[in-house]
């Protein structure tokens, strides 16, 4: 459906995107995820035709569109700022794209159909400047979809909204995408948005692809430290592999039991080099009544109830912080001595 091959973009001497390749299948919801300045927006804009790539090709529905101007690509795009035309009504905004695509006869039906889809029926004649932030995003989405583009590009469309609205519109985007099954490429720096929306995530850093895969594979099997730390929360330990016992990682007084298979081949675990261990908060148990192979004394240092659960931060004896996701309102208090434990299979070794 969409194929990016060896995409490279230089701004003067600055390398924004380096030799990036990936592809998206029909009906997929893919996300370009990375910190700001990682090249994700540049990539999206190159796909839209708003930026000319230095090298590489972009193929859409089997056609090489690399050198086509944006107006000949049949793409829908939602901008960070909504980019609704301030001198037009809601209906005129939608009609603009429809007319430019020669769909004059269908303006009325499509406008009502797509405003209905984003639950903005009845706002046809409103000025776009009168709408709230959330309403503007909805209209912007309807405008991008009304002429049924081959692909929908979303450039951090939730920026600038408050948390409740972010989640609400995020769910609506997901729902709309399922409903009309439009191939979607989403750009965000927020790993939570990426994990909850997409079925394919491409993690970018410094213009390069770090890893590509389903949310599950990225979360459970990150290929490197950047992905492990950027996608999802975790507790982080370091240590040296033990030559004699392949299933043990040593760090001073702490000994970690790990799944020997999980130690990467590339990490030379025989010469005593450092490895990093990650444990996801939901895999850690507090106040161990059963016995774990990894079990440590810890002191509660911070408790944050976030409603559905609570996030507890503890400190091991050597000061290493451990993050735990527990039931809400746990029977704990800051400063309390307890124990934490986790299974060797839940330790990610990198």
């Amino acid at each position: 459906m969409l194929e990016i091959t060896n995409l490279t973009k230089y701004y003067g001497d600055h390398l924004a995107v380096e030799d990036l390749s990936f592809s998206i299948e029909e009906g997929d919801f893919a996300t370009l995820l990375g910190p700001s300045g990682c090249g994700k927006s540049t990539t999206l804009r190159t796909i839209a035709g708003l930026i000319e790539p230095t090298e590489g090709t972009i193929t859409l529905r089997g056609e090489d569109v690399t050198n086509l101007p944006p107006d000949q690509r049949n793409i829908g795009m939602v901008f960070q700022s909504s980019a609704l035309f301030p001198h037009m009504t809601v209906k005129e905004n939608l009609a603009y794209g429809l007319k430019m695509h020669g769909l004059d006869d269908e303006v009325d039906t499509r406008v009502s159909e797509y405003l209905d889809l984003v639950e903005m029926s009845g706002y046809e004649d409103h000025k776009t400047t009168e709408l709230s932030g959330g309403q503007q995003r909805r209209v912007s989405i309807a405008r991008a979809l009304a002429y049924e583009p081959d692909i929908l590009l979303l450039d951090e469309p939730l920026t600038g909204l408050d948390r409740v609205l972010r989640e609400q519109i995020r769910n609506e985007i997901k729902q709309i995408q399922r409903e009309i099954n439009v191939t979607t490429l989403f750009v965000t720096h927020d790993q939570q948005e990426a994990l909850s929306l997409s079925n394919q995530i491409i993690v970018l850093n410094n213009g390069q692809k770090e890893q590509e895969g389903t949310p599950e594979s990225l979360y459970e099997h990150p290929k490197n430290r950047f992905v492990a730390e950027f996608v999802g929360k975790s507790s982080r330990f370091t240590g040296q592999p033990d030559d004699t016992k392949p299933s043990v990682i040593q760090n001073g007084s702490l000994t970690f039991a790990v799944d020997p298979e999980s130690i990467p081949d590339t990490s030379p675990n025989t010469d005593g080099a450092d490895v990093t261990l990650y444990v996801r908060p939901e895999d850690v148990v507090i106040d161990t009544s059963s016995t774990f192979q990894n079990e440590f004394d810890a002191t509660v240092s911070h408790i944050a109830d976030v409603g559905s659960h609570s996030e507890i931060e503890l400190e091991l004896e050597d000061g290493t912080p451990v993050l735990v996701e527990a039931e809400r309102f746990p029977d704990l208090s800051v400063g309390e001595q307890t124990t934490v434990g986790f299974d060797p299979e839940d330790v990610i070794v990198l």
């Binding site: 708003l50 101007p69 944006p70 107006d71 690509r73 829908g76 980019a83 603009y96 430019m100 002429y147």
Partner: peptide, 12 residues
Amino acid sequence: DLREASRVLGAN
């Protein structure tokens, strides 16, 4: 963004 939006919407 307004210009870019217009281009993506199909206007030259």
